[in-house]
Design a protein around this nucleic acid. Structure first.
Length: 698
DNA sequence: TCCACGGGCATTTTT
DNA sequence: TGCCCGTGGA
C-alpha cells in the first residue's frame, strides 16, 4: 500500500500533522495511550518511502533497546523491507558506534570496554583505597551517584567545583577514577555520551560528517532526556535543525537519574521556530481512567497543559480497597484475580504495580498459595548475575587486556589458586606495556611457587587458544566454559543461567549475522533483559517504573500509603512529590479497562509495624470516578487465637475496658506472648497482649 | 586463599 | 527483617 494512503487511513489529524511536518524542529506532546509509537514509525516510513530519504540519513534514538527493536520491526513491517542501514538505537549504542570510529581523537583506543554500574562502583572503591581516604565516610556507591550526576549534566572532572571539604575529596576520588578508567581503556555509561559530544564540539570535520550523515533525527521519550544527552543532540544538530522529539512531560519519572523534563518544556525556546503538536486522543483507557488520572496530574504545578480525551466512553469505576495489612491486601488482589479469571480474563492482561521491590514478597506468598502463576519483572537482572559477569569478563579481557576489572574476575573465578598478589603482578606487567601472554610469562619466571607456575602456564595456553577464536563467538564461549570447567561446582540455577547465556550468543549471531567478538561485546554491554519475551499465562508483578510504556486490561496499584507511595524520601520537596505524582499517573494510565487501588492500614516495614495514612493521591482523584470497597473482607483466611476460653478471629469485634469497641486486625499466635492488633477507630490502633489485656468478645 | 560471621543499611534504576 | 560487604581466623 502506498504510504500516503496509509497515513490518510491509519492516522488521526494530529498524528498526521506530526508525521508530515518535515522541515525544521518539531515537538510532539504525546499523552498516555495516544499512539506515539505509531506516529513515530509512520514518520520514519514516510521519510523513506514518501520523501525518498536514504535510511542511512536517518537517526532514531530511544532510551531502551526494547523500544529500538520495536520501532525497527514496526517500520520494516510498514515498508515491507528491512532497514538495517538505518540507525535506530539507544543513545548509548549510537555513541558506542560513533566512538569506535572517533575515540582516537581523545587518546583512547577503539577497543575500549564499557563498564556497568557495578564495575564503576568497584573502580571508585579502588580509587578511594588508593587515596587512603576513610571509606566509611565516602561510600563508593554514593560517590558513584554523585559523579554520575555531574556527568549527566554533561560535565567533566575539571568542571566540578568543590564547595566544602567533603566535595574536595569527592573531586579527588573523581579524578582518580577517571585516571584508572583511562589507564584501563574503560568507559562508563556517562562517558559514552559525553565523549561523543566532546569529539563533535572539538573537531568540526567530525561534526560536519555526522551532521551531514544524520539529515533527520528523531528522539523518543524526550521527557527522559538529561542535560548531557541534550548537549549531544545540540552538537549533532549544529548544521541542520531537522529534529523531531516526542514524549509526555507528565510521564517523566527518572529525575533521580538525571532526567529533566524541563528540557522538553523549554524545547521551543531551545530550537527556534519549533512546530508543536499535541496528540490528544487516548485510545488505550476508558473515559473513567483517563479523567481520573487527569484529575490527579492537575495537582502538579510545573507541567505543560495539554488536551487529552478518551475514545472509549464510560467505563467501570476505579475501585479502592483499604486492607488491614499487606497480607490482607495481597489476599484481596488474589481474590479479585480469581473473579476475573472466572470471567474469562487472561492472566497476561493483569498487572500488580508497586512502588518498591520489597512489596512483591507478600504478593508472591499469596499467589503461590493460590496456585496462580506469576512473573516478576525486574529484580536481579540476568546480566548482573555473578556467573554471567564472570563469563563476560573472559570476553572483555580477550579484547582489551588492560581491562583490569575483568582480569580480576577472570583469575578469581573459577578458582585457580591464584590470589591477589599474583593478579597485582600481572596487572603491573600489563601496565608497563606488555600484552597478556608476555605478562603471564614474566610472572611465571619471577615466581618461585610451582603451583602458581603450573596454573599460570595452563591459563596462558588456554588464552592463546581463545585468541584464535575471536571470529566465532559461540565456539569461543563454549570453549572457555569447557577449558575452565566453568560449570563445575555451580548450583543448578546458575548452571541454567550459563546455558541461557549460550542461547543468547546463538540469538545474537542469528539476528546480527556476525560472529564477531567485538560486536557481540558492544551489544552485550548495553542490554538489559527488559526484552525477554514470555508468552505463558502469568500475572505480571513489577514496580511502576518498570511498567512505563506497557498496558494491561486490569491493573492493581498497591501500597498507596503516605511514606510508601509517595515514598518517604520524596516527602520533603515539591519537586519530588510531583515526580511521585507523575509516577502515580504512569501507574494509573497503564490500565485499559479496570483499575484497582489498594492501601493497608497497617504495614510491617523492616520488621516494624507501621500505621500509615492513606496516600494523598487517593484524595486527589476526583471522587466521581471512584468506588470505595471499604475495609477488610478475608474472614475465611483469618487466623484465630484462644483467649481465656474464647477464640478471637481477625475481623471480629471485641471490647476493651479502657479503649471500648474495636476490630481485630491481626492475630499473632506466638507461643510465649500471643497478641492481637486492634483498630479502635479514628486512627487508634493498638497492639494488645492476649495474656493480660482486659478484653472480651462482643 | 577461602569461608563464616556480624555490623550496617535499606526507592525507583532505560544504559 | 533480610541482604551485602568487610574482616578475621583456619
Amino acid at each position: 500500500m502506498n504510504i500516503r494512503a496509509l497515513i490518510e487511513r491509519e492516522l488521526n489529524e494530529e498524528q498526521r500533522e506530526a508525521v508530515l511536518w518535515t522541515e525544521g524542529p518539531i515537538l510532539v506532546f504525546a499523552g498516555a495511550g495516544s499512539g506515539k509509537t505509531k506516529t513515530l514509525t509512520m514518520r520514519i516510513a514516510y521519510l523513506i518511502e514518501g520523501l525518498k530519504i536514504n535510511p542511512t540519513n536517518i537517526l532514531a534514538v530511544t532510551f531502551t533497546n526494547k523500544a529500538a527493536y520495536e520501532m525497527k520491526s514496526r517500520v520494516e513491517k510498514l515498508l515491507n523491507r528491512n532497514i538495517d542501514y538505518m540507525w535506530i538505537g539507544t543513545f548509548h549504542s549510537m555513541c558506542v558506534r560513533i566512538l569506535r570510529r572517533e575515540i582516537h581523537h581523545l587518546g583512547y583506543k577503539s577497543n575500549f570496554s564499557i563498564l556497568d554500574e557495578e564495575d564503576s562502583v568497584k573502580l571508585i572503591s579502588d580509587a578511594i583505597k588508593s587515596l587512603e581516604i576513610p571509606k566509611d565516610y565516602f561510600s563508593p556507591k554514593k560517590i558513584y551517584r554523585e559523579i554520575s550526576w555531574i556527568k549527566s549534566r554533561g560535565k567533566f572532572v575539571n568542571d566540578y567545583i568543590p564547595h566544602d571539604n567533603y566535595e574536595v575529596n569527592v573531586k579527588r576520588i573523581f579524578k582518580k577514577y577517571e585516571e584508572i578508567k583511562k589507564e584501563g581503556n574503560l568507559l562508563d555509561f556517562d562517558d559514552l555520551i559525553n565523549f561523543v559530544t566532546k569529539v563533535l564540539n572539538k573537531y568540526d570535520e567530525v561534526a560536519h560528517f555526522y551532521g551531514d550523515k544524520f539529515k533527520f533525527i528523531l528522539v523518543d521519550e524526550y521527557q527522559d532526556i538529561n542535560p548531557s544527552q541534550h548537549k549531544l543532540l545540540k552538537a549533532l544538530t549544529k548544521y541542520h535543525k531537522n529534529i523531531f522529539v516526542v514524549g509526555d512531560d507528565d510521564q517523566s519519572i527518572y529525575r533521580f537519574r538525571g532526567s529533566t523534563y524541563e528540557l522538553m518544556l523549554s524545547f521551543k525556546r531551545d530550537f527556534k521556530g519549533t512546530k508543536v503538536v499535541y496528540l490528544s486522543k487516548n485510545y488505550r483507557s476508558t473515559e473513567t481512567i483517563v479523567n481520573a488520572s487527569k484529575g490527579l496530574i492537575l495537582f502538579n504545578k510545573k507541567r505543560e497543559e495539554k488536551p487529552l480525551k478518551s475514545t472509549k466512553k464510560g467505563g467501570e469505576k476505579i475501585k479502592v480497597y483499604a486492607a488491614l495489612n499487606e497480607i490482607d491486601e495481597a489476599m484481596f488482589v488474589v481474590r479479585t484475580i480469581d473473579e476475573l479469571i472466572s470471567k474469562g480474563i487472561s492472566l497476561n492482561d493483569i498487572a500488580i504495580l508497586y512502588r518498591t521491590n520489597s512489596q512483591s514478597r507478600a504478593f508472591e506468598d499469596i499467589l503461590i498459595r493460590s496456585g496462580i502463576p506469576y512473573r516478576i519483572v525486574g529484580g536481579i537482572k540476568f546480566y548482573q548475575r555473578k556467573e554471567i559477569k564472570d563469563i563476560i569478563s573472559y570476553l572483555r579481557l580477550l579484547l582489551n587486556y588492560k581491562d583490569f576489572l575483568s582480569l580480576e574476575r577472570v583469575f578469581s573465578f573459577p578458582k585457580r589458586g591464584i590470589g591477589k598478589k599474583t593478579i597485582e603482578r600481572i596487572k603491573r606487567e600489563i601496565t608497563s606495556g606488555k600484552d597478556m601472554i608476555q605478562a603471564i610469562e614474566s610472572v611465571i619466571k619471577e615466581t618461585s611457587q610451582t603451583k602458581i607456575k603450573e596454573n599460570l602456564e595452563k591459563f596462558k595456553e588456554n588464552f592463546k587458544k581463545w585468541e584464535t577464536l575471536k571470529d566465532s563467538v559461540f565456539t569461543l564461549v563454549e570453549t572457555i566454559i569447557k577449558d575452565t570447567n566453568f560449570r563445575d561446582n555451580l548450583e543448578d540455577e546458575r548452571r541454567e543461567n550459563v546455558d541461557e547465556f549460550l542461547s543468547i550468543v546463538r540469538d545474537f549471531i542469528d539476528r546480527s549475522n556476525t560472529e564477531n567478538l567485538d560486536e557481540f561485546l558492544s551489544y552485550i554491554s548495553l542490554i538489559t533483559d527488559a526484552d525477554k519475551i514470555e508468552s505463558t499465562e502469568k500475572v505480571t508483578l513489577m514496580t511502576v517504573h518498570a511498567a512505563k510504556g506497557l498496558e494491561f486490561d486490569t491493573v492493581f496499584v498497591v501500597g498507596l500509603e503516605e511514606g510508601l507511595f509517595p515514598h518517604f524520601k520524596s516527602l520533603a520537596s515539591r519537586e519530588d512529590i510531583e515526580e511521585e505524582r507523575r509516577l502515580m499517573y504512569v501507574a494509573m494510565t497503564r490500565a485499559k479497562e479496570r483499575l484497582f487501588l489498594t492501601y493497608a492500614l497497617r504495614r510491617t516495614i523492616r520488621g516494624r509495624p507501621e500505621f500509615p495514612e492513606p496516600s494523598r493521591f487517593l484524595n486527589e482523584i476526583p471522587g466521581e470516578y471512584v468506588e470505595n470497597l471499604g475495609e477488610y473482607s478475608s474472614q475465611e483466611e483469618s487466623k484465630s487465637q484462644f483467649v481465656r476460653g474464647v477464640s478471637v478471629r481477625e475481623g471480629e469485634r471485641i471490647r476493651h475496658e479502657e479503649f471500648g469497641y474495636g476490630i481485630v486486625i491481626e492475630v499473632h499466635s506466638e507461643a510465649n506472648n500471643p497478641y492481637i492488633v486492634v483498630d479502635f477507630g479514628e486512627g487508634n490502633i493498638k497492639q494488645l497482649s492476649l495474656k493480660y489485656a482486659p478484653i472480651r468478645k462482643e
